[in-house]
Design a protein around this nucleic acid. Sequence first.
DNA 1: ACAAAAGTGTTTTTAATACACCCATGA
DNA 2: TCATGGGTGTATTAAAAACACTTTTGT
Lengths: 247, 247
Amino acid sequence: MNATPRTINPHISVDCVIFGFSTNRLRVLLIEREYLDENGVRATDHKLPGDFMDIDEDLDSAATRTLEELTGLRNIYLQQFAVFGQPDRISRLVDMQWLKETTGMEIRRVVTSAYYALINITESNEEFALKNRASWMDIHRIPALAFDHAAIIQTGLEHLQKALQIEPIGFELLPEKFTIRELQSLYEVVLGSSFDNRNFRKKILKSACVVQLDEKQRGVAHKPAFYYRFDRNRYEAHKKEYISFNF
Amino acid sequence: MNATPRTINPHISVDCVIFGFSTNRLRVLLIEREYLDENGVRATDHKLPGDFMDIDEDLDSAATRTLEELTGLRNIYLQQFAVFGQPDRISRLVDMQWLKETTGMEIRRVVTSAYYALINITESNEEFALKNRASWMDIHRIPALAFDHAAIIQTGLEHLQKALQIEPIGFELLPEKFTIRELQSLYEVVLGSSFDNRNFRKKILKSACVVQLDEKQRGVAHKPAFYYRFDRNRYEAHKKEYISFNF
DNA sequence: ACAAAAGTGTTTTTAATACACCCATGA
DNA sequence: TCATGGGTGTATTAAAAACACTTTTGT
């Protein structure tokens, strides 16, 4: 992949489930992969962005690097959520061949550390994505994927859903300025449920993690909504240290 | 360690933070390790139970195996919670020497998958523990540890605390029969806070995950408490699918 | 009879839910 | 003037929190 020679650790990799939100869909950034099928014909499918670790590289650094190469973004919300190490996760012929083609090594076993990232699609660099044959796929229309990447996405989604209910991270998927309704739609789409708009506003505004801007929407054929922005300081100041158990 | 030769994968290991609860303390099972200090003198410190993976072994299997070797227990609550892969996690001389001594290899870099386990100390096999020089240490009095094991314990504890508030797993740390007060003490010790006993009982009984037995405590110098047991079926039947966000 | 922990009920406060109409804008 | 989505308030219900005394046993 790289022109400059690298020394990789062929036993450990990172894979990133990069979430984005656009046109009211939760999306995942997937990379088109070219491989030789059983008849030796060139075909394509998709895979998660990921890479082997460089020798002496940190896991988090490898994930950050992967993310930056694809989106041009730094300082992104990035969270390790699981390790996948089934011996049979590299069992299909095409996967083995593809590894040989891209690394020049016979690789039979890789343990991968899975991360999920939350990014604002509008701020990501489209050139970087195109150059890497990356595209944003609706989480409900994921095509056939390499390795066990479908399972990685699924458990990544479950972790995102849980985190979204506990920490104010929805903002990471939106532009800096957003309307309350956009935030609500995001919650509804990611959690797959719907909320009463009055109660949703109340809850968000009570949590005091958001501040209203002077600016309104423009050019919309209805009453324009105010923009808000996430305010981490206010959130930290107001957050309740709750110890309560719910099961 | 083993008499029979094994083929290990020297890049990947598992480490288990095995939690137990006794005499009102949260405890962790630690193994005494012998090593040569910088003057070549034999000394000891402690480490987490863990091992390299066998070639073609599954991560979960390696953790289960480690657990069984030390406690004689099977079917234990076991949860992967993080991966530790800092390049400098094997940086101290004694750690490098110890690896060389025990594996016969020069190992500079290991990525470890960390698990936490919840066990009932009274059911665990003390012989197994003694044979492995293992002992139950108060989580608040952890001695100096090998590698980055202190950090692994710390984040394991944080994961346990979070899980305890969301899922009914406290029972895993208690004998089959337990009193409500024992359960409350466990919650208080693990979460480091205290609860009103009336409200605690109400909450536990309302959640319907526990059934009262006919049996009472015997030989206690106060009103004897009823024993209860955890009932997974009742729990599954009564649990509420809550989607609500708290932050 | 005393000490020690078990067990119990009610009131107050807070959070969650359910619900319907008017408002500002572009077309 | 109409269609569209934004924005608001109140009443009801459910859950959490605060709080103090009686009971049963062993010594």
